[in-house]
């Protein structure tokens, strides 16, 4: 499945719990904000939003990492554009 992952840099405080849980998807930049990776790679540079092809297991890890964010700065959307995290 394809998921859109977005980090709001205004909310991100660099707590980095997402990096600990899902290092293949998140990494800190020099501004202490988290940016989004595609399976450990950053094609096109350090961006706050990506569409990524994921397995069910990878999705579960991604959701866990988003749930661990203390500022709820990670947003996940499905292929139809529906927000699946945080719950609306």
């Amino acid at each position: 499945m394809k998921l859109t992952i977005k980090v709001d840099p205004d909310l991100c405080i660099g707590a980095a719990s997402c990096v600990t849980i899902d290092p293949a998807t998140f990494l800190l930049n020099e501004e202490n904000k988290v940016y989004v990776l595609d399976h450990g790679e950053a094609p096109g540079g350090q961006v706050y939003e990506r569409v990524i092809e994921m397995t069910e297991d990878e999705k579960e890890t991604l959701i866990l990492s988003a749930q661990s964010c203390p500022t709820l700065a990670i947003f996940i959307y499905d292929e139809a554009g529906e927000q699946i995290y945080p719950d609306m």
Binding site: L11, T71, L72, P86
Partner: peptide, 23 residues
């Protein structure tokens, strides 16, 4: 709720209801 987000709420970055992590 997120204690870390409380200051974001007071700084008007997020509405109060966004601070809650579980319903």
């Amino acid at each position: 709720y997120s204690r870390i987000l409380l200051v974001h709420y007071l700084e008007e970055k997020v509405p109060r209801e966004r601070v809650f992590m579980k319903k």
